[in-house]
C-alpha cells in the first residue's frame, strides 16, 4: 500500500522532471532561433544600407559624366529610369519572407547595377574624365560600393542559410513549426547582370 503510493509518486516526479526538461529545452531552442533570425535581419539591413549608398551616389555620378559626355543621352536616361524604379520599391523587412517581393527588389537593383556599369563603360571612351577629380572619386566609390554589396549579400545568404537550417533540421523544426517561424529567401546570384566583364577599373 505504502509502496504503491511511493512508486506512483516517483513516476509522477520523473514525469514532471521530464516535462520540465522538455520545456527548458524548447525554450532554449526557441531563443536560439530568435537570435539567428535577428542576425538575418541585421544582415539584411546591411544589404539595404549598401544598396542605398549606391542609390545616393547615382545623381552625382550622372552629373559628373554629363559634364563631359553630353551626347550620351540614352545612357543617362537608362540610369535615371533604373534608379527611379528602385526608388519606387517599398522595402520592408517582410521582403525576406516573400520570394516575389525579393525577386522584384533584385531585378530593380540589378537593372540599376547594369545601367551603372554601362555608364562607366561609356565613360571609358572619354579619357578627359580621368583628369576630373570628382569622377575618379565617384568611380572608386561606386566600385567600393559594388564590392560592399556583394560582401553583404554573401553574409546575408550565410545568415539565411544558418537560420533555414536551424528551423528545418529535426529538433529545431518542431519548435519552429509550433511557434510559426518560416523559411527566408536567399539572394540569387544573377550571373553577369550586375557586373559585366567589360568594365575593368
Amino acid at each position: 500500500m505504502n509502496k504503491t503510493v511511493l512508486v506512483v509518486l516517483i513516476v509522477l516526479g520523473a514525469l514532471l522532471l521530464l516535462g520540465l526538461i522538455l520545456v527548458g529545452w524548447g525554450v532554449s531552442v526557441y531563443n536560439r532561433i530568435v537570435t539567428t533570425e535577428e542576425s538575418v535581419k541585421s544582415a539584411w539591413s546591411q544589404v539595404e544600407n549598401q544598396y542605398q549608398r549606391r542609390y545616393d551616389l547615382v545623381p552625382n555620378l550622372v552629373e559628373t559624366v554629363k559634364g563631359v559626355a553630353k551626347q550620351e543621352q540614352t545612357v543617362f536616361e537608362n540610369v535615371t529610369r533604373a534608379r527611379a524604379s528602385v526608388g519606387q520599391l517599398t522595402v520592408t523587412p517582410e521582403i525576406m519572407n516573400d520570394p516575389q517581393a525579393m525577386q522584384r527588389f533584385q531585378q530593380a537593383q540589378d537593372a540599376l547595377g547594369s545601367a551603372l556599369s554601362r555608364l562607366l563603360a561609356v565613360a571609358e571612351n572619354y579619357p578627359q574624365l580621368r583628369s576630373v577629380e570628382a569622377f575618379v572619386t565617384l568611380q572608386s566609390q561606386l566600385e567600393g560600393t559594388e564590392n560592399r554589396i556583394s560582401v553583404e549579400r554573401r553574409r546575408f545568404n550565410e545568415a539565411v542559410q544558418q537560420y533555414n537550417l536551424m528551423i528545418r533540421r529535426f529538433p529545431g523544426s518542431i519548435i519552429a513549426g509550433m511557434t510559426g517561424f518560416t523559411e527566408k529567401v536567399y539572394f540569387e546570384s544573377t550571373a553577369g547582370a550586375d557586373q559585366p566583364p567589360q568594365v575593368k577599373f
Partner: peptide, 15 residues
Amino acid sequence: SWSGRGGLSGGGGAT
C-alpha cells in the same frame, strides 16, 4: 603572439 581583436570589415577599400 599577435592576433586580430575581433574587428569586422564589409568590403570597403580599394583594389
